[in-house]
Design a binder for these strands. Structure first.
Lengths: 143, 143
DNA sequence: AAATGAAAATCAACTTAGTTGCAAATATCA
DNA sequence: TGATATTTGCAACTAAGTTGATTTTCATTT
């Protein structure tokens, strides 16, 4: 997941001002090969400049709402974030029990999923979760 | 997900004492057709008797470690729990954007997943997550 | 029946990740 | 330039869960 995207242009296309902090968030994520926690993003930016955590949380939130980022509920009590641009289509993730890192796996077609997920990268897969999100039949009826 | 399991026996088989609270937790989950938050379990028990939240959290934690329950990291900042006994094999979940409820879907074979997930129950699937958990190659090398 | 000891439950205080409301700074437009 | 809107920062707060110490329960042993 290297940064192939032109972030200023990406933001411009959505009418979002490309402020220094917004670009910093995108660059940190673009430079990462794995999904990152808000905390990690915050620290990465702080290694270069001064930021308030609230600002970062708000940027992450805004980006997620606009579909610029995907928020992953992969681990209890912490969100992970990744770029959601055309170069980073949805894909399965692999979290290590031990170090907690969240690797991105190939967005292989679903039929090949099971086979693919168990083998590659030398990971030992103990558990595969499949999760669907949307609007349930009950809520669809109401609205 | 109705309770087909004999909880006292289940616990006995694992050498876990079937205390009133432990059974209460299992009964609440056994009676539910969906995965529940710790909060909901706590409230369900409190409608019948007095409990301290710490006790419930510790029971949920112990049960999860022993494989009696599965903890689902389905939503930011809250865990959901479900029975992990033989009558409740792993399966995909559906969370409603609107009400937040976490339905259990059929544990259909993975090759049929995609097709199956989109159609049934009248839910509108906006997003399908596939998540793998285990020990990554790096951590495997170290230990 | 009383004493003992281990397991279970409780309590208060704390932690972590994230949120709110408002003020200050910065950018944008007339 | 001044007026307005947007972004950032700060302090205080919240929700969910955790910790450590204490008390209760309860099955044994005396």
């Amino acid at each position: 997941m290297s940064d192939l995207c032109d972030f200023p242009q990406l933001l411009a296309g959505l009418g979002v001002k490309p402020t220094a902090l917004r670009l910093a968030v995108l660059e940190v994520l673009g430079a990462s090969s794995k999904a990152l926690r808000a905390q990690e993003i915050l620290e990465a930016i702080r290694s270069k400049r001064r930021v308030n955590k609230v600002t970062v949380y708000r940027i992450l939130d805004g980006f997620t709402r606009r579909g610029i980022l995907r928020r992953l509920a992969i681990e209890d009590r912490v969100s992970h974030y990744e770029l959601a641009c055309e170069h980073h289509p949805p894909h399965p993730h692999f979290q290590c029990h031990n170090c907690g890192q969240v690797q991105c796996l190939e967005p292989a077609p679903l039929e090949r999923m099971w086979r693919d997920l168990k083998g590659p990268l030398g990971n030992r897969a103990d558990r595969i979760d499949i999760r669907v999100e949307g609007v349930c039949h009950k809520c669809r009826e109401i609205s």
